[in-house]
Design a protein around this nucleic acid. Structure first.
Lengths: 151, 151
DNA sequence: GATGAAAACTTTATAAG
DNA sequence: CTTATAAAGTTTTCATC
């Protein structure tokens, strides 16, 4: 992967629907080699896919919260059921098993404190094995990237 | 926004480069009204944009960490300088000002513990006003969505 | 790597049912 | 909403320098 590939990745990570002609111009190549590189990056899995970015607020979920979850027990069956349930909750954008005091970190989209309470009371606290949670409400987003920008 | 709009958003949030004909078929419309709806959703800002998703591991940053940051003081000038610096660090994917014990939550991509140490020692601890940090290393990602899926 | 060309497809706009 | 049309632009493949 050379400097031009990295430039292609930087462009497409911000503007995923650039046409090949636009991309070629942006990275200083003619369309034909530019196209070959993009296909190679896609086939190598370096470009994993493309996505439309939706406005959370327009979907009624303007706020972001980080919820840490501590589980009661750690038997396989309980974790598996918890993980399946998490995948089915649309407000939960991300969930990671993590090191540290808590077991999981969740990033969720909610509509204000009322939406947060509903997520917690109606969904998370009903999941098997949730002992304790700790939440940080996002007041302002300073930075949001989907992928690291290649240097 | 009706059920078809929501279906369009669900499709495009997973497959951002579907052609209009493919999208129309997926949502059960003919191409012409499908196109009108997509343009309306884009112009209303409900679709904010499109992005290529890159493979973090292929970029040498296979691991995800959540870093909470506590600041020494909270004067405007120091926060402003911190925030500018954060935006310039490519490993930092997200940074949110949050409620709770800590001031900021950062999501970053790193290459193992060595990459994490470098980020902390060479970049974060050199920023003005960082008093204390608390990190969770992600062991496994259970769920990762870019936007809430409209229901 | 650049250029050019050709076929197939896509986008965009418009008109009519 | 559907179907249909049409021009302009894009993708994809391929040959050549």
């Amino acid at each position: 992967m050379d400097a031009i590939d990295k430039k292609i990745l930087r462009e497409l990570s911000r503007q995923g629907r650039l046409t090949n002609a636009e991309l070629a111009e942006a990275v200083g190549l003619s369309p034909s080699p530019c196209w070959t590189r993009v296909k190679r990056l896609e086939q190598a899995g370096i470009i994993k896919g493309y996505a439309a970015l939706l406005d959370q607020a327009a979907l009624g979920l303007p706020d972001t919260v980080f919820i840490e979850i501590m589980m009661e027990r750690h038997d396989e069956d309980q974790l598996r059921r918890f993980e399946e349930a998490v995948r089915a909750i649309p407000e939960i954008l991300e969930c990671h098993l993590v090191t540290g005091e808590y077991d999981y970190v969740i990033k969720a989209a909610v509509g204000g404190t009322a939406g947060y309470e509903r997520l917690l009371r109606d969904k998370l606290y009903r999941l098997p094995g949730v002992r304790h949670t700790r939440t940080s409400f996002a007041l302002r987003c300073l930075k949001q990237e989907l992928s690291p920008r290649p240097e």
